[in-house]
């Protein structure tokens, strides 16, 4: 690590004010940033920790019936407290990393980082969630802009994520053997106005919606509806853990399993 200053603001307003410095960076749960610092791959002059800001933490239900999760809420809290409202989302959170990761890592940190193999982006995109920031509200379809790239601007903090609750949903993660991030992860969510299918882990562009499957499943929410439907291997990740063709194949298998699990 290189030397840096750290500030621990108690309010969102103070955090936004503190980030002014040129090389300053927000620190959420630190699950990506801290290892990066330890490897000396980043050298911020100042870190602004978001961990002490009470207004970023916790879950609530809003008037529209959405489950709203503060950006600084840990995966462990989501796993525990979302279970009654949105079980598929809670189950996803319960299987991110290990207990140490789940008790430090936050939903806001995960979404700001937008790792192409992270789990949360699939839930957010499939749920058509709204990302609320210190400045504005961003629809999920407008938020994810590619691998490690989002619509967030410098100094903007994810304050809350609002998930409309689906009629049925399920997340299937096929773990990469070493990291146990998603080699492919599929989140399927069925709403009154249609089915959304979001794929993580597979694409060089990060999380994306599988529109062919959505169309088929919106007509018939049954794994049989996507039999014979193949995801396009073009643009998918190929590495030592799997070829693009293998990832494309897994997208089909996992989507079917997610639908079966959600429908059951």
């Amino acid at each position: 690590m290189y030397a840096f200053e750290i500030e621990r603001p108690k309010s969102l307003a103070d955090a936004v004010a503190a980030i002014g410095a040129e090389e300053a960076q927000f620190l959420g749960g630190g699950q990506t940033l801290i290892p990066t610092l330890k490897q000396r791959l980043a050298a911020p002059s100042k870190l602004v920790s978001l961990s002490g800001i009470a207004e970023l933490k916790g879950l609530r239900m809003d008037d529209a019936g959405r489950v709203c999760i503060g950006g600084g809420t840990t995966h462990a809290t989501v796993a525990r407290e979302a279970a009654a409202h949105y079980p598929a989302l809670a189950a996803l959170a319960a299987h991110i990393g290990d207990p140490a990761v789940r008790n430090r890592g936050t939903i806001g940190g995960s979404l700001a980082n937008n790792d192409p193999s992270a789990c949360y982006p699939a839930a957010v995109l499939a749920s058509n969630a709204t990302i609320v920031t210190s400045n504005r509200e961003i629809a999920a379809d407008d938020y994810f802009e590619g691998m490690f790239t989002t619509a967030l601007e410098d100094g903007e903090i994810v304050t809350e994520v609002r998930f409309p609750i689906p009629q049925a949903a399920n997340y299937q993660k096929f773990a990469q053997p070493a990291s146990r991030f998603a080699l492919v992860g599929v989140f399927v969510a069925k709403y009154a106005d249609g089915v959304r299918v979001a794929i993580t882990g597979a694409s060089e562009q990060g999380v994306f919606r599988w529109s062919e499957a959505e169309a088929a499943l919106s007509k018939s929410f049954d794994a049989a509806a996507i039999k014979g439907l193949a995801a396009d291997a073009d643009g998918l990740i190929g590495d030592m853990h799997g070829t693009p063709a293998y990832r494309a194949h897994l997208i089909g298998v996992l989507t079917g399993r997610a639908v079966t699990a959600a429908a059951g």
């Binding site: 096929f174 053997p177 080699l183 853990h241 799997g242 070829t243 293998y246 194949h249």
Partner: peptide
């Protein structure tokens, strides 16, 4: 070896 899922599937 290693018999990873990708290799077995292939």
């Amino acid at each position: 070896m290693p018999l990873s899922p990708a290799r077995v599937w292939a």
